[in-house]
């Protein structure tokens, strides 16, 4: 079953066309990767899918709802979570609080209830905390629970961000370059972890430059170049496809 279906997504910045009508489909329960050279429009597409950047044309269907014009927070409430390439953790809050906020969509108390500290509010906060502690344990962050998130080393901040996204209990998780800046050991842990998410029933859609990671875990790969989809298929097919090699490896060679 299709969980995410984006059609003909267009977006330009000034005169530069960043996305020239891209179609992307993600099957429920799979791990799908989006790859392409720098500047091919991957992050722009992620920003549009998660609603923090408006698109100029196109259509996005998520869980059978047309969410193309929805603000970011409504998409999250429906079950879409994401992480950021350049990390957007709440630096001056504790690790625990960061992850607690992830569970925001499972709570509902309002402003007045909060100010009056009604029993419902306290119950919700307890539940959020319990859930967050559980996730911290799973990601090996328990000992950092009360540390300010901004003080952690980069690799751990990345984990905090993933824990936060998981606290949302997403149906679809968008990971924007989750391996960037990680060591080889950390990357292989990450691969195992992402695989584990699939068993939990979370659909994963990721942007990644680390080809070993992408080829190792993805079931389906979509290739962008210059704002257009140039190919999509299984990892094996992508590896063999000439246009991909040309676009992708050509750039790699140029980079040295």
């Amino acid at each position: 079953m299709v969980i995410l279906d984006a059609r003909n997504v267009k977006r330009s910045f000034g005169g530069v066309k960043a996305l020239k009508g891209v179609d992307v489909t993600v099957q429920e329960g799979t791990i799908t990767a989006l790859i392409g050279p720098n500047g091919s429009g991957k992050t722009t597409l992620f920003n549009i899918l998660s609603g923090i950047l408006p698109m100029e044309e196109g259509e996005i269907i998520f869980m059978n709802q047309d969410i193309g014009k929805w603000p970011a927070h409504k998409r999250a409430l429906l079950g879409m979570a994401r992480t950021f390439q350049n990390l957007q953790i709440f630096q001056e809050m504790s690790v625990l609080e960061n992850v607690m906020i992830g569970g925001f969509r499972h709570t509902s108390s309002g402003f007045m209830a909060g100010g009056l500290s009604l029993p419902k509010v306290r119950g919700e906060m307890k539940a959020l905390e319990g859930k967050a502690i559980e996730l911290l344990g799973e990601l090996g962050l328990t000992s950092y629970a009360h540390v300010q998130a901004g003080e952690l080393p980069f690799g751990l901040q990345r984990k905090v961000e993933i824990a936060r996204a998981l606290a949302l209990e997403p149906k679809l998780l968008l990971l924007d370059e989750p391996a960037a800046g990680l060591t080889t050991k950390e990357t292989s842990d990450l691969a195992r972890f992402i695989h584990g998410l699939k068993e939990r029933g979370i659909t994963v859609f990721l942007v990644e430059h680390d080809m070993d990671l992408v080829m190792g875990i993805s079931e389906w790969i979509i290739v962008l170049n210059f704002g257009q989809k140039i190919y999509e298929g299984t990892p094996l097919a992508v590896k063999r496809e000439r246009t991909v090699i040309k676009a992708y490896l050509g750039e790699r060679r140029a980079k040295g």
């Binding site: 957007q88 925001f104 969509r105």
Partner: peptide
């Protein structure tokens, strides 16, 4: 601290 991140959390 981050409006963007907050909005993607609902």
């Amino acid at each position: 601290y981050s409006e963007v991140a907050a909005s993607t959390l609902g």
